[in-house]
């Protein structure tokens, strides 16, 4: 317990919250982007890239996190695997959960018109 380096709190926090934070950023971007696209002065078609780009980017980032989890842990100063196995499991599952939310919000674009009044 004494010999290992002390884990960084903020790094660890960022590490286990990586997934939900990714979702939060994507959600903010698509909501704001879509609102901007529905302003009178802006062409409605702009909604497509404004929603699609953050969605794809967030999804790719989530996949990258899962594939390179150890590297992320090290970079952020979280306790490195194999120490604290539970922490790493938590971070991984949280990213998967966020991925579902990212995809669900994103694919609405394929089914629903952007700026018509919602019914």
């Amino acid at each position: 317990m004494r010999s290992e380096p002390t884990a960084s709190f903020w790094g660890t926090l960022l590490y286990i919250l990586a997934g939900p934070l990714l979702w939060a950023v994507q959600f903010t971007l698509i909501y704001a982007g879509h609102t901007a696209a529905c302003l009178p002065a802006v062409p409605e078609t702009l909604a497509v890239p404004l929603v699609a780009v953050p969605t794809v980017a967030a999804a790719l980032a989530a996949v990258a996190f899962i594939l390179r989890q150890e590297a992320f842990a090290r970079a952020l100063g979280a306790p490195e695997p194999p120490r604290a196995a539970a922490l790493h499991a938590i971070a991984r599952i949280a990213v998967l959960l966020a991925l579902v939310a990212v995809i669900w919000s994103g694919f609405a674009l394929a089914l629903v018109d952007s700026c018509l009044a919602g019914r």
Partner: peptide, 20 residues
């Protein structure tokens, strides 16, 4: 009376919160 896609985003997250 907000735009449809906007509501759809929130509908999706309302579903996502059911998973936990």
């Amino acid at each position: 009376g907000l735009p449809a896609l906007s509501l759809a985003f929130f509908s999706a997250v309302s579903m996502a919160v059911a998973i936990p």
